[in-house]
Nucleic acid binder design. Structure first.
Lengths: 217, 217
DNA sequence: AACTAAATTTAGACAAATCTAAAAATTGAT
DNA sequence: ATCAATTTTTAGATTTGTCTAAATTTAGTT
């Protein structure tokens, strides 16, 4: 597998959110900032290798083999992210670019040892689940903070947006995964929320609330 | 810098043993198991970038910029080797191939943090010196065990041959860096040596002795 | 059902890195 | 100093991944 092939497989996996629907050529091109024609070219190559199914003019989906490949790449990416944060003191908004490179390193032993060194983490620094060695992959039971009803409590378990801007916003306001919060009030006008988090009260926009995953308590 | 460019720079550095003599096109091709014509092509490209000096029909040498680049790559390679052995329990004969991949990861922060995590090691698992962040690079005072006179003592500080076969031989006979040994006898016939190492006596061939670096004590 | 707009694919081209085969330069042996 | 052997370079081709521009298919509207 070349690096380019791996990146396509990973992108299709993400766009399909782990499922195996057909993903549009344009969607892949957009996500990878490349041209649709390039996507078609690669689709043919990946289809020949048995990694994707390419239905002409309809889209591309992963085969079971492609899905397994994607899970391996995602596993590597997320384990490296944990490593960077837990062992090298990277901030959670600094890890993506480096993990993007590290995920292509080819050594099963390396990944297994890394996994053990990190004590077999289940989630990456953004709360996304880490597939196991044999490809098991469990989405956590979670919902967006914006969907929580007034009065209910939630545990912060992940972020939807992983941009530096958003993650630094959370840092600035001392919102971190593992914290419990409660929705105190919702403004009908703009769907902004008043929340209680620890001993603090905070008012956050809907844009923030709809990018933070919580587990209802 | 592409990966291919980095590999050429690194190879030229190694063949020149850190110096800046002209290295023959053929020597580079041999070392990289590629064709001389490919080396010439790359030499032109690297010369244009100011990394090497290419004297037509004479050979290729690193410019100061090329040398600096090489040192960065060597630094990365050796730090990753230390990491693999010290943190992930790799054996010293298992690290090369993986480090070959990891050395191309582009992140200064990653390397600096790794360096700190490993406590700023001066030598890699094979005893080779690790260049510092600013490119300082000090060869240790060392000589081949085969050059030691009968009766003298030495501290094992490195290996010349880093092949699995040789490293596993050393493991098997419990010869490791950091150990002290003494030359008891030399056979004139084949230059094999009797050595005292710890409380053991060992008889080793010249081929072994001329691939083990010691520091005279 | 026909037509337009959007999405997708094809055809042909290009850059990077490599190769083969042929040409040119160097070396060294007499 | 000349010639043969070796080394190196050049010229032209190949593969991978990409692009542009044109052609094709699909989808939505009336």
């Amino acid at each position: 597998m070349t690096r380019a092939e791996e990146n396509y497989i990973k992108t299709i996996f993400h766009l399909a959110k782990g499922g195996n629907q057909l993903i549009a050529t344009n969607a892949i091109a957009m996500e990878m900032t490349t041209k649709p024609s390039s996507v078609t070219d690669m689709a043919k190559k990946l289809a020949e290798k048995g990694l994707v199914t390419h239905v002409r003019y309809q889209g591309i989906s992963l085969t079971p083999l492609g899905r397994k490949t994607a899970l391996t790449i995602v596993r590597k990416h997320r384990l490296w992210e944990v490593f960077l944060v837990a062992k090298l003191n990277f901030k959670w908004d600094e890890v993506h670019e480096v993990a993007e490179q590290l995920e292509h390193i080819k050594s099963e032993k390396l990944i297994d040892r890394l996994d053990a060194m990190l004590d077999f983490p289940k989630y990456d620094p953004h709360g996304d689940p880490i597939p196991t060695k044999n490809g098991a992959f469990q989405e956590r039971d979670k919902q967006l903070l914006s969907e929580l009803s007034v009065g209910s409590q939630g545990l912060c378990v992940g972020v939807k947006d992983t941009s530096s801007a958003f993650l630094q916003f959370l840092d600035k306001h001392h919102i971190a995964l593992g914290q419990t919060l409660q929705v105190l009030e919702r403004e009908d006008f703009d769907d902004s929320l008043s929340i209680q988090i620890g001993d603090r009260r905070l008012h956050i926009s809907n844009q923030i609330a709809s990018n933070l995953f919580v587990k209802k308590e």
